[in-house]
Design a protein around this nucleic acid. Sequence first.
DNA 1: CTAATTCCTATAGCGACTATAGGAGCAAGC
DNA 2: GCTTGCTCCTATAGTCGCTATAGGAATTAG
Lengths: 142, 142
Amino acid sequence: MKDMDFTIGEVSRASGVKVPTIRFYEKSGLIDAPPRSEGGRRLYGESDIRRLRFIRHARELGFELEDIRELLAMSAQPQDSCHHVDSIASRHLAGVEERIQRLQSLREELQRMILECGHGRVCECRVLQVLGDHQECAHEQH
Amino acid sequence: MKDMDFTIGEVSRASGVKVPTIRFYEKSGLIDAPPRSEGGRRLYGESDIRRLRFIRHARELGFELEDIRELLAMSAQPQDSCHHVDSIASRHLAGVEERIQRLQSLREELQRMILECGHGRVCECRVLQVLGDHQECAHEQH
DNA sequence: CTAATTCCTATAGCGACTATAGGAGCAAGC
DNA sequence: GCTTGCTCCTATAGTCGCTATAGGAATTAG
């Protein structure tokens, strides 16, 4: 706790996390409640910026706050094995791969639907027909 | 309005939409409030099952309820041009394609992170290092 | 000294449900 | 007729990860 020099707006700009989101993370226990100025304003240090950057980056990579909470706790125990860190990341990767699969078959379905539409009247629109009848789908995985 | 023979549980099983979700759709105006039995229970017909199937299928394809509301309204006007139907589907396809792109670069990042981890101590874990420093990323698109 | 900006708290809203609580209706077996 | 168990009813709160709003107080720039 050397220099607590930054306002919430400054750490927001420095970390890329929006001001209300920082307060939200504090309430959720992802970051500690910082000390306050005389006027009651939050005062942050460099380490808070690093922590917020970590959170932001993990969120961009699609980790849930619960995962991030665990990852942060683990990085506070530098001598522990990183096996569990790996397992969180791997589980997350598996989820991402599944979502890619699902979206790809979805994309094909949509492309086919749009391609087959003769752009005529609604009553013969393939898009609406396909939506109305799952049988019309090429894939069954949804 | 010929036969209103089905209970909410039956249309749920027939359409694949869960019972509380059907009531939620009713409240949201996606389906009409059906007539009731003497005892106050909802009574549905075949057309409700078709409508719920349409909704479920569109949801599985990732359309938002707002889009589905529009698609349903359009399919009630069979003589209109289906141009707008197309535009909703195309807009949706573009969104799906973008999400696939984002998830793919995400996957690479996660794979690299996990691969490079030597499974040692937390203090030298690549996963945590990468999360802590965006510079370490191969891609800049997030 | 004033005006603009930033900060504070508390609360509500988003989307698309899901879960819970506390009842009431209804069919089948005894 | 009665009980058991299932389904149904309503209303409300919770999920996730924020975002927006209202109504102030503090700080900063001119």
